[in-house]
Amino acid sequence: MTEERADPAEPRAGPGTPGREGVARRGVALLAGIAVAVLALDVLTKVAAVASLEDRAPLELLGGAVYLVLLRNPGAAWSMATGYTWVLTIVALVVVGVIIRIARRLASTGWAIGLGLVLGGALGNLIDRFFRSPGPLRGHVVDMVSLFAPDGSVWPVFNVADSSIVCGGILLVLMAVRGIEIDGTRAPGKDTGGVTDGG
């Protein structure tokens, strides 16, 4: 009776080595946690802005580097596409749906953080689109931070959700440039400088 030996090239999961499903679950949990935190912070800051900045002059901070001013934006950044609020709402819904769908393949910490930031920001602005005036799918997004000028002439007035989406998008681009896939693997031919990101 011969003893079968395991193929030495075949990876074996040790007691402290999480399987692919476990890594994916941790990635989804990280994504969800970041999205919830961003959403909560966005909602709270918008409620505070409406309560304290309505019908008052912009509040100057840091010697004029930052101004707090209430702005209801029907469009995207720089007030672009102001007549297509419903289109922006649909685009945001698609983004949320895509993130939720691909989350099951998630096994990269960097991708989890980036997608969590984008998801939380998209949900934050979607709440405004659905529940603020003038009505569902047409609601105006509450913005309150203006840089270097009180009227958004230097940089568009933004909110926590906008910042989160931008930061998350930059992180996702960096991950793609480094060749790190959403499942934690590396794209062929990409040099990551020995830095790993398997979750």
Rank of each mutant, 00 (worst) to 15 (best):
Ile90Leu: 13
Leu53Met: 11
Arg56Cys: 03
Asn73Asp: 07
Ala37Tyr: 02
Ala51Glu: 09
Thr85Met: 07
Asp55Leu: 04
Val94Glu: 09
Gly83Cys: 00
Tyr84Arg: 12
Gly64Thr: 02
Arg20Cys: 04
Val43Gly: 11
Ala24His: 01
Ala81Val: 13
Asp55Gly: 10
Ala65Phe: 12
Arg105Ala: 13
Ala112Pro: 05
Val43Ser: 14
Leu93Ser: 10
Gly14Leu: 11
Gly64Lys: 05
Thr2Cys: 12
Leu53Trp: 00
Arg5Asn: 14
Val69Ile: 05
Ile34Cys: 05
Ala57Phe: 09
Val91Trp: 12
Asn73Tyr: 10
Val28Pro: 02
Ala6Trp: 11
Lys46Ser: 04
Ile113Ala: 15
Tyr84Thr: 14
Ala37Asn: 00
Ala9Gly: 13
Ile100Glu: 07
Thr82Ser: 14
Asp42Met: 03
Glu60Phe: 04
Val28Met: 13
Arg72Cys: 02
Ala40Leu: 15
Ile102Ala: 05
Gly14Pro: 00
Val38Ser: 04
Glu54Ala: 14
Leu31His: 06
Ile113Asn: 09
Asp7Ile: 04
Val95Met: 06
Ala103Tyr: 07
Glu54Val: 11
Arg25Tyr: 08
Glu21Ala: 14
Thr82Glu: 13
Val36Glu: 01
Trp86Thr: 12
Val95Trp: 04
Arg25Glu: 08
Ala112Leu: 03
Gly114Lys: 08
Val98Ser: 09
Pro11Cys: 04
Leu59Pro: 06
Leu88Tyr: 06
Ala24Tyr: 10
Ala49Phe: 06
Ser52Pro: 12
Arg5His: 15
Tyr84His: 13
Ala37Ile: 02
Leu115Val: 05
Ala48Trp: 12
Thr89Trp: 01
Arg26Cys: 01
Thr85Glu: 00
Gly64Asn: 06
Pro8Tyr: 03
Leu115His: 09
Glu4Tyr: 11
Gly22Arg: 03
Pro74Met: 02
Ala6Glu: 13
Ala51Thr: 10
Arg101Cys: 02
Ala103His: 08
Asn73Cys: 10
Ala24Trp: 08
Val23Glu: 00
Gly16Ala: 14
Val96Phe: 02
Glu4Gly: 13
Pro15Gly: 15
Lys46Trp: 06
Gly75Asn: 09
Leu88His: 08
Gly27Val: 02
Ala65Pro: 03
Met80Pro: 02
Ala107Met: 07
Gly22Gln: 10
Pro74Leu: 01
Val23Met: 10
Leu61Thr: 04
Gly110Trp: 08
Ala92Cys: 00
Gly22Met: 03
Asn73Met: 09
Leu31Asn: 05
Ala35Ser: 01
Gly97Phe: 07
Val38Phe: 08
Leu62Tyr: 05
Arg105Gly: 11
Asp7Glu: 05
Ala51Tyr: 01
Leu44Asn: 13
Tyr67Trp: 09
Val50Met: 12
Gly33Glu: 03
Leu41Tyr: 05
Met80Cys: 13
Ala107Cys: 09
Val98Leu: 10
Val36Asn: 01
